[in-house]
Amino acid sequence: MDEVEVEVEVKVENEVKVVVAHSERATLRVGDVFLKVDADQARLDAEVEAMALVPVPTPEILWRKPPVLALAALPGTTLGRLGGPSTGSPAAWAAAGAAIRKLHEAPLPPWPARGKPLDELTAELDAECEHLVSNDVLPAALVTRNRQVAEAALRPWTPTFTHGDLQIAHIFVDDANEVTGIIDWSEAGPGDPLYDLATFTLGHEKHLPDVITGYGTDVDLDLDVIRAWWSLRSLLVIRWLTDHGFDPFAPGCEVDVLKSRM
């Protein structure tokens, strides 16, 4: 929850595309090469280490020259984006679920979780809810309802190897419904597996059953917790998005996610 990546795509004359940009890092695409520029060398190191450990396909590392990491483009396409239409067959969504399950079954990485302890996360959530109401960003009833829903996510969990920022734009699937790669591993580490599932399906609730079909139901899989993470994540990011010039009120985005809990 420390930061949010916002997917954008801006084409300029020299065919360089800005595909991710925020105050701490950016990703550029030049032809079939992605250049990740990160002010935090430790974060780039963590991304490279995670990709070496995970049992799922990841981009090929072409070269490293801090603060830049060059990665080869992945074949296939994503299944959509937050606030946009979803694509792909039920089989493609199930394939993504199976890949997430494979990641979660991997041995834990040799570094601690990067998320906040439960007491800090709870305090941050309460502060954001207070801000949203006191500044008339959202109606009090909407915030109160989603704070109640979010409570289910604030519980102990058994950590697994998680991606940590598994947005829908981070998994690529080909026409044969095979996952060709998962990108952006800088937040990877021990974490709540249901947070990964919630992040991937945020704003695309209708595809959650397909993802669960691929993931499997032979584990402790509480759908109320996944829904709780939708509310919790959305409540936490609205101020950040607004302050940085993005629109969480756009159709299908975070505010609509919160309204769907009503």
Rank of each mutant, 00 (worst) to 15 (best):
V8Q: 14
K11C: 07
K11R: 13
V12L: 12
E13R: 15
V16L: 15
V16H: 02
K17D: 10
V18R: 04
H22P: 02
A26M: 15
R29K: 11
R29W: 05
V30N: 02
V30L: 13
V30Q: 08
G31R: 11
D32T: 13
V33K: 09
F34W: 10
D38N: 13
A39Y: 06
D40I: 05
Q41A: 12
D45L: 07
D45N: 11
A46D: 08
E49F: 07
A52K: 13
P55D: 06
P59Y: 08
E60N: 02
L62M: 06
K65W: 00
A73E: 10
P75F: 07
G76T: 13
T77D: 14
R81P: 00
G83V: 08
G84E: 11
A95K: 08
G97K: 04
A98D: 05
A99F: 13
R101S: 11
P112Q: 10
K116M: 12
L118Q: 08
L118P: 00
E128T: 03
C129K: 00
D136T: 07
L138Y: 03
T144R: 14
Q148R: 12
W157K: 01
W157E: 01
W157L: 01
W157V: 13
G164H: 05
G164E: 02
L166V: 02
I168N: 03
H170P: 07
D175Y: 00
A176P: 00
N177H: 10
T180D: 06
G181W: 00
I182W: 00
D184V: 00
D184Y: 02
G189I: 05
G191R: 08
L194A: 04
D196F: 13
T199H: 10
G203Y: 03
G203E: 01
D210I: 05
G216E: 07
D220H: 09
D224F: 13
A228C: 11
A228I: 10
A228Q: 11
L235A: 11
I238S: 12
I238F: 10
H244R: 15
G252Y: 11
D256M: 09
L258F: 08
L258Y: 09
L258T: 09
K259Q: 15
K259I: 13
S260N: 12
